[in-house]
Structure formats: structure tokens, C-alpha cells
Design a protein around this nucleic acid. Sequence first.
DNA 1: TCCATTGAATGGGTGATCCATTTAATAATT
DNA 2: AATTATTAAATGGATCACCCATTCAATGGA
Lengths: 288, 288
Amino acid sequence: MSTKSSPRAPQRSRIAPPNRRERASDLRAAGASAAPTFKPIHTRRTFEEICERIREQLALGVLKPGDKLPAERELAQQLGVSRNVLREALRSLEMAGVLRLQKGVKGGAFIQQGDTRRMNEVMRDMLSLGTISVRELSEARVHVLDLVVQLACANARRADLDALEANIERTELATKEGRLLDRVECSREFYKLLAASTGNKVIAMIVDSVTEIHMRFVYAKVASSGVAMARLAEKRRQFLAALSERDVALASRLLRSHLESVQRMLEQDPGAMSLHVALADVQPGMRR
Amino acid sequence: MSTKSSPRAPQRSRIAPPNRRERASDLRAAGASAAPTFKPIHTRRTFEEICERIREQLALGVLKPGDKLPAERELAQQLGVSRNVLREALRSLEMAGVLRLQKGVKGGAFIQQGDTRRMNEVMRDMLSLGTISVRELSEARVHVLDLVVQLACANARRADLDALEANIERTELATKEGRLLDRVECSREFYKLLAASTGNKVIAMIVDSVTEIHMRFVYAKVASSGVAMARLAEKRRQFLAALSERDVALASRLLRSHLESVQRMLEQDPGAMSLHVALADVQPGMRR
DNA sequence: TCCATTGAATGGGTGATCCATTTAATAATT
DNA sequence: AATTATTAAATGGATCACCCATTCAATGGA
């Protein structure tokens, strides 16, 4: 009613989303000691409420992977919100890897198995936004991989080692045939397999997230310069042998020195190593 | 009208989002060897396109934290999409911590400084969905913290140590006054400070993400049983002393043994340690 | 000078409507 | 009887046209 308050039904008379506007009760001390600041409320919006409710059902185990949510039209009515705003919530959850939306009759919103690649995207966003630096990422990767070697030596199974072996064979083949970019893909896969061989999916997720970005740089470097790591497969074999022998010290040393030489390669011609070119586009093997 | 195809303009004659339907080129071997599967395309939707474009601008450095996107109505027109679908995209980016939407004239969509808490939510979702287990998380946390101790010994600065000292004082106070739940908040903060003292935000982010969940369990345990770790502040002091002396071995040993005793505490009365109760609600100190 | 009022810009939200895809049921054809 | 088109319904995808609530600069009166 900016001008004349036209005599029109207020149309806001629906079911009234449970706790929507009455939000004064939301201030809470939140800290361990006296907290004199009173800022961070920023009124709850319906889509947030919806996301939270669905996540809550999930955490409570009421919703499990494979389950289907009611159809948009129906769920919107149940929640007493418009279909549009419900979709905003569903979209967010879909982007978060929690849901998958499927069209057609028998379609709907299905709870997904968690997608560990979500963490890669977080890492990528943090880098894009300048919250973390490439240096920090590389450094963290070195440390984390060191940890991975320890765990892999302790926990890797026969099947894990076999998978690594097979990967090295593909690397050799790609080298022979001069498919340098494919070889980068092999490297990506190598670290993924190595991470998996720790037997801990949390660790694996972390490793993947820092490696994914790193590999973008390697990919960009190889693609632009044509140079590539010498004796790669051979080094991998030595490393795998150490791993198979459960020789932490040796495996750790080998990997570390390899990482250092890769780092040197990347740091040649530093101008070309733009953060932006490496992050800008989706590259092979990184499909969402 | 569902039956007879009324003679109406098809209304789909807008600018036509650049590469929307022509996605046949999207099949690609993606792996290092033959890939006979042809599944994973699932037609690109406009909101995904929009998200990707904005992220691209971000990665390219065209958009930086602090920048403001055009108003919804205008941006929608520029992109040739409806405002609603644009909002779905903005919502997703907001949930991802990339944007913040602000109301009012002079409001708009502002690029944010990256929010490192995003990773916590990923971890939480993975746990809710059963992709990772509590055991894996605890295990990973122990290993990662071990790494953190090494890095903190090497890199912690005076200010970091002072912050930890101040935290311990708060812990003591809370202990004296019997505020057990506040003390849990202190613990959360302690690990956050410890993580920060490594000087590496990637590591810090990782530590925070595994610690946040862990602390929910501790919180739930303390809240329900009233029991709490004995001699906590004292142990913290010993640890901090070791850290200040840059004594990796000692600090590492102290932390490890503390983590083990906490773990034992949590594992008493295992039935009560439901994943669901710990994850279900937002607890103090975890406000988004 | 100071404070209340106004009004425009902006995000938040609604409801109706249409399109495109998918699937099951049905009818037509062989 | 088996196969193949056709039809119809359900569902997500998307659009349009509004309205509401908040914010803030400009305006104007005390």
C-alpha cells in the first residue's frame, strides 16, 4: 500500500507456516562467556526453514537415502508455502547433494546417497573467493598425503594395491602413446585410489578435495606447456612397492620427493599458473 | 486444457540460454581407459547454468567478494530467464556461502568472503546420509589432530598461544562455576584456536569440520548424563605448555591420550549416543 | 538543526498457468 | 496373442504478474 491502500483481500490467509514471523525468541547467548553483540539474526526465511526441516528429518532417520518426498505441489500445500519457494529449498538441497529431482510421473525428489564431491566444490569456492590460497592448499595437501601414506601402509588391502597397480599400468600405456592429458587423469585417479586405500572415507574425502584442485593446475600446466613429469610410472612403481612392503618411511619419502618435483614443475613460469584459468572451467574427469 | 492444445503463442521465444539443450557433445571417456557406461547426463537446467556462470565469473576474478550483482529483476532480464528461476540459482549460491542477499533499496546479491563453515555442513550431511560413519569421523579426527599438533608446534605464534591461554582460563572459570555445557563450548573453541594456530586455513577448515560434529556428541553426552571430563583445564595447560616449548612428541602424546579418554567417556552407555539426537538440532555455538 | 514522512528500489513470497518428460493404461494393428 | 501406437495423467521445469516487507535516501515541516 505504497500509495492508496486499495481495498483488496490480503491474500496472506493460508495455513500460516508454523514459526515464520514470530522470531523475536531467536536471540540466544550462544557463546561460552558474556556475549555483548546482538547482530547475527537476519530474519529466517521460509526456504531456510524448509531446508532445515528436511535436514532434520534426515538426521532423525525419518528420511533415508532412496526415500521420495511428496510431489512439489502436495508438499508445498502441506508446508503451507507456495510451490516456488519450496522449489528454492529443493534446489538448494539438490545442490548440496542431498536430493535428486527426477521428472515425469514416478518422478519426484529422492534422497541421495551422499555425494563426497560436495567437498571439492567447497574447496573450489573458497579458492575462488580468496578465502584460502593456493599455497595453503598445496601445503595442506602435502601434509595430508603424508598422513595418507601412514594410513595406507597400515590399512591398504590386496584389492587396493591391485587397483593401484592397474592404474600404474594405464599410466605406462598413456606415457608410451604420448597421451599426456590422459596421464594427468591417471594421476588424479591414482591419488583417489591411494586415498581410498586408507579405508577411511572421511580421510578419502579430504584428500580428494585438495587433490582435485591441485590436478586442475597440473592439467592446465601440461595442456599449455606440453611438459610432463619424467619417469612418472617408474616412480609410482617404487612407491607402490614400498606401500606393499608397509614401509612407511620409504613410501613417505618417495611421495614427498615426488610432490616436491611436481611443485617445482608447476612453479616454473609462474605467470602462466593463473588461479583463474585453472578454476574457470570444468575439465575432463571432474564432471559433476 | 490438458486435452486440447489451445491455440496459444508458445511463449518460449526468449533469448535462449546459450548452450542449453545441445548437450550431446557431453559424452566423453572421462577415464583413462574404455568407459562403456552412458548414463550420467541428466539434462542441464537453467538454474545450473546460471550458478555455473556466476561461479565462472568468480573464478575468473571478474566478480570478487564485496561486489554486487545486478538486481534480481534486471539480472533475470539480462540472462533471459524468469525471476523465479534466477532466484533458485541465487538461493543455491547463498546456501553455498558464495552470496548473501540483502533486502531494501541498496540491497542486492553481494559476493561474500568464503564461509569456511560450509565444510561442516557437508560433513554433517554425509553423516546424516550414512555416507560416512561416526567411527570414520572420530578416527580421521584423531589423525588430523595429530597432524595439527605438529604444524602448531612449528607455526603457532605468540598471539595464538595467548588465545589458547585465554580459552583455558575461561574453561577453568566455567568448571569452577559448574557450567558444564559452557565448558563444552570452550572445548569447541579450543580446537578451533588450535587449528587456527597452524597458520593454514585449509587445515583449519578440515579440523573444524570434523571437530564440529564431534562436539555435538560431547554436548549431547554432557547434557544428558551430566558427566564431564575430569581435570580438563589442567590437561589443557600441560598441553599448551608442551606446545609453547615446541615439544611435538609430548604435545602429541598428551592430546592423544586426552582424545582417547574422551572417546571412552562417549562410548560408555553406547545406546544413548544416537547419531540422530546429536545431529538433529542446531545447538548453541553452531548457529549458521 | 533535527526529526518525521514519503516513496522508490529491492528481496521475499504467492498463485495461476503452461511446457516437457516420463510412465502406465488403453487402443489399434499385426 | 503379441506387438505397437496412442492417450492420459503425474511430475518437475519455467514463466508471468502480482503483492508484501524492509530499507534508505530525499523531502519537508517543526
